[in-house]
């Protein structure tokens, strides 16, 4: 019973926190330089891992798809399969996950440390709104960075799939590309970017939340990081199901 109560109270707090975050987004405009700094950091931190992960997921999607399609002679659909699954699903999910893993943990660690070392109180006493100074710049950076990262992820995963199809499985290069062009619509790309953006926003809110309400001590900091990664990862996967169901039925 105590646990249930704790979770409910936590959800309430989270709702309140998210509300304040989005209100601050409109009322407490941060220093644009801070936003750029965070965008740059997100890019530098996330792009390399994201590309690495997307490349190897793309290769495997192509391999798995090939073996399934080959059994009934449908190899020519490999391009459609790789294109759609990467653009619609994998790129947004992997972007959300990598953003949670790199800049997300960075946020929860930084903010939790600031909380534990009384730096957030110090901000308040110096009449600086911690939401405006710490949280909103990161939220804006996430909102802008995520769709771009999804594009990168989609491009590299499909490209990796293409290389496997053409150089390892010796499929026709033109056929693969045509397939991608015919089946992957602009709408799909847009939906993928939107999904990635939503995952990133949720990830940013949760990372900030767990950091901001960190328990004292180094234990508190590690707990904040832990909680944010686990919660975001589970959330993304579950939320993704409902989103895909809602968009594509």
């Amino acid at each position: 019973m105590k646990q249930v109560e704790k979770v409910l109270v936590g959800l309430g707090e989270l709702g309140f926190f998210a509300g304040r975050m989005f209100r601050s987004l409109f009322s407490a405009w941060p220093d644009p330089q801070l936003v750029l700094l965070h965008m740059y950091k997100i890019g530098v931190e996330t792009l390399p891992v994201l590309i690495a992960v997307c490349v190897f997921v793309g290769t495997n999607i192509a391999l798995v798809g090939y073996h399934i399609f080959k059994s009934f002679g449908g190899q020519q659909f490999l391009g459609a399969y790789v294109g759609l699954s990467c653009v619609r699903e994998l790129a947004p999910i992997l972007t959300g996950a990598m953003m949670a893993a790199k800049p997300g943990t960075d946020i929860s660690a930084t903010i939790a440390t600031m909380r534990v070392k009384e730096q957030i109180d110090a901000l308040e006493v110096m009449s600086v709104d911690p939401f405006q100074f710490l949280i909103v710049p990161r939220l804006i950076a996430f909102i802008f960075a995520a769709p771009l990262l999804v594009l990168f992820g989609a491009f590299f995963s499909v490209a990796a799939g293409y290389f496997v199809a053409v150089y390892q499985l010796h499929l026709n290069s033109g056929q693969f590309l045509n397939d991608v062009r015919n089946y992957v619509l602009l709408q799909d790309v847009f939906n993928g970017m939107l999904k990635g953006g939503l995952f990133a926003i949720v990830g940013c809110v949760l990372s900030c939340f767990f950091g901001f309400y960190s328990q004292p001590g180094p234990k508190g900091v590690s707990r904040a990081i832990n909680l944010s990664v686990v919660t975001i990862a589970s959330f993304i996967v579950i939320f993704n199901f409902f989103l895909t169901a809602a968009i594509y039925g």
Binding site: V116, K117, E118, D121, Q215, P216, G217, P218
Partner: peptide
């Protein structure tokens, strides 16, 4: 900060 900080009560 780890033992008797202001939030120690929540530990």
């Amino acid at each position: 900060p780890y033992v008797t900080g202001e939030l120690a009560g929540e530990d």
